[in-house]
Design a binder for these strands. Structure first.
Lengths: 247, 247
DNA sequence: GCAGCGTAAACTGTATGCAATTTTCCCAGG
DNA sequence: CCTGGGAAAATTGCATACAGTTTACGCTGC
């Protein structure tokens, strides 16, 4: 009997956080919540994104069904959707496995991410409202304390929030979807870089460049700074990535 | 008893064409093909992309199950994946419906598409192999005949191929995925523009600008030309789009 | 001791069944 | 004629069942 302790949901599709115990909230009175599959998608995505399940690991349907106390049917649906999203891979008559990308594909995802972040920063520089700019700046400046204290986890939470602001500031729903989706798929490979020495300060400085450019409505600089920021993370992460399929 | 006549599969996930009759290829000997769901995803995606099913139309599970001669279980899985891809929308206890985006969301998708095409063109200009450049040019020049003949359908096939070449030329798997996915989601809204007078010639000229820039390895010009090309399609299409939910 | 093989266990793919919810439609009331 | 309410029909959400495939494991032969 496994117990889950996922407490923080980096939600793929709707981007809000929530507590989720091992047993999904299926009260007897509300037997048909109608979102059991949706909850499972989030829960499993969390397991993958947080690293509780490593790339390459098997996701067998029966275990998951027992773990979440549902039948295999919703589990299968959830796995199908995760496959469509790209977080897991399936072959006929075999267990689903957490997607394990090749070095090359990983590099392509980071490059795509850099492009997307660049677009978001550029559009944010052009389109953010006064309020959005103010909030971006305020939150960024507040994070300086976290850097000085070396509060890794808190800074990471801030970091996620910071980037989400940039994505939203672009005022383009579809770009938001694309960048969010790509971020989720990269998440399993980005944890490596959290512990590098001096990472927090460097991240802060790079954020600073982005914020300054956005506030000046300097689209070109914002874009370039955001691109460079991702490239830094990429460099730090790729070296940690284990190579995928031993062909 | 409905009969399908989908003959050309603009496949979302793997991008290859295939004939698909009303009854999926489930031979008795190969009862467990293992890919029934996958085939259904493609088949339904085709229905949507080709316009056989219009945005807003209901996809009820029982009808689809009868139509494809399978049970509701694989139908449900397929709908779930199409939902994850974004081609259909689902609410608990309601039928899935073909995604009907608002004018605003549609505009955001076209803008995102323009950005992505721009990226592909830029990267293609930088990275295409000699062979790839030669093929791009040759195919583009061959299409001039179609323009003169006014062969709309053939030109459309060429157009799809042309853009796919640019996506591949970028040599970035993830960007390819994003742009392919976005194209699929835009497909239902792009058919409107096919019949506009002078469209073929204009398209050809715009392709020409892209090809010239790519051949010169002029990344900036290629990117700009590709962006402008999509913007043209966007202008032509958005006016045709019916507005989504009457809030 | 180890490789090859065959059987059993485990697991996936799909069909079917049932409870819950939504939708439809008919009829009374205004 | 139109509107509102309510019951029946239609449909979704999930569980269970079963057939077929893959995987694990032990056994035999070398």
């Amino acid at each position: 009997m496994l117990t889950m302790t996922v407490t923080h949901c980096i939600c793929i599709q709707c981007n809000f956080n929530q507590i989720r115990p091992v047993k999904l909230a299926r009260k007897k009175e509300v037997i048909r919540s109608g979102t059991t599959v949706e909850q499972m998608v989030r829960a499993i995505a969390d397991l993958i994104i947080t690293g509780a399940m490593q790339p390459g690991e098997r996701l067998d349907e029966i275990s998951l069904a027992n773990r979440f106390e549902v039948s295999r049917t919703p589990v299968r649906e959830a796995l199908g959707q995760l496959c469509a999203i790209g977080l897991v891979e399936r072959e006929p008559n075999k267990s689903a496995v957490v997607t394990n990308v090749s070095q090359q594909h990983l590099a392509s995802m980071f490059e795509a991410m850099a492009e997307l972040e660049g677009i978001c920063a550029r559009l944010s520089a052009e389109r953010m409202t006064v309020d959005e700019r103010r909030m971006l700046e305020a939150e960024h400046k507040a994070s300086a304390r976290l850097v000085h204290r070396g509060a890794e986890d808190e800074y990471e939470a801030h970091n996620t929030e910071f980037h989400t602001r940039l994505y939203r500031g672009a005022h383009n729903d579809h770009v938001f979807e694309l960048v969010t989706q790509t971020r989720a798929r990269l998440a399993p490979f980005r944890r490596a870089q959290f512990r590098l020495p001096g990472r927090l300060l460097r991240s802060y400085e790079e954020h600073d460049a982005i914020v300054l450019a956005v506030l000046r409505a300097d689209a070109v600089s914002a874009s370039r700074a955001a691109y460079a920021h991702v490239a830094t993370v990429s460099d730090a992460s790729i070296v940690f990535a284990r190579d995928a399929e031993p062909a």
